[in-house]
Design a binder for these strands. Structure first.
Ligand SMILES: [Mn+2]
Ligand SMILES: [Mn+2]
Ligand SMILES: [Zn+2]
Ligand SMILES: [Zn+2]
Lengths: 134, 134
DNA sequence: GAAAAACCTGCAACAAAGTTGCAATAATTC
DNA sequence: GAATTATTGCAACTTTGTTGCAGGTTTTTC
């Protein structure tokens, strides 16, 4: 599914900026990337602020997920391989610092801790050594 | 175990700033707090930069854990109730925004995804409705 | 397909969070 | 208590993200 169709399906205005940002995310080869990386890729075509606002729209429309990794900037990735309740786990190597998406690894959803909490989403972060650094 | 003993045991210089920061964390009633909150509590006694550097020392000495929640600032909490490989899960309410430590909830450690990854630590974030908001 | 409505975007200015260098100060060791 | 080692405050800076508003696009309506 390409950019234009994704935006249409989500009922979002199909603008040049959004197409470009979605393309950046598609080309990120499944790795979460940060707004400044996207901005750099787009060059001067769009303002930094537009990238932030575009990512917000995409997250709001559930096309994109926000990923929290051990870096100051939030990262983003397409949500097409995640379920409503659970994104795949992310693995960050403590040696080289790279983050990998573990799309095949399934982790059972945590049981509500019988105190009245209703769990709607689960996010798992793993840390250790990647194959290159082990 | 109080502040002074913890620092001694970790082989850290026992300074006024570190004692004050550890006290702040002890008084946080088990909730992760952010550097600016600690800074505000300490008033003008210590510089903001000192709080950051102190937290870094404490994290490095494994007395404190960095917690990533859905807020711009990193949060910190004492590590005394966490194992080497796993901190307790954190639950953030999508309604009121509060974060709770689920110290009783045990989540099985993810199996290394048989690709040469060595998993050393796991962090789980849950999202949903807290008892007050449900 | 033009006008109206709804929504996006760039710019400039701002705010919050965190980092760095360096001189002064404090804690520990001997 | 002098020497060593590590921590601190200050000022300046960087990165990341947010806001208001005027002007521009996209979509819808007719
Ligand atoms: Mn991913
Ligand atoms: Mn906690
Ligand atoms: Zn690595
Ligand atoms: Zn709540």
């Amino acid at each position: 599914m390409e950019a234009r169709a994704m935006l249409k399906a989500a009922g979002l205005y199909c603008t040049a900026a959004r197409l470009a940002v979605v393309d950046s995310l598609l080309q990120a080869s499944g790795r979460p990337i940060k707004p400044s990386t996207i901005s750099a890729q787009l060059g001067t075509r769009f303002d930094r602020v537009t990238v932030y606002r575009t990512l917000d729209s995409l997250v709001h429309a559930d096309l994109v997920h926000k990923v929290f990794i051990e870096e100051r900037a939030c990262h983003y990735e397409l949500a097409h391989r995640c379920s409503k309740t659970q994104c795949h786990p992310h693995f960050t190597c403590t040696c080289c610092g790279h983050t990998h998406c573990l799309t095949q690894l399934k982790i059972p959803m945590a049981q509500s801790p019988h105190l009245g909490f209703i769990v709607q989403r689960q996010q798992v972060r793993l840390e250790g050594l990647c194959p290159d650094c082990a």
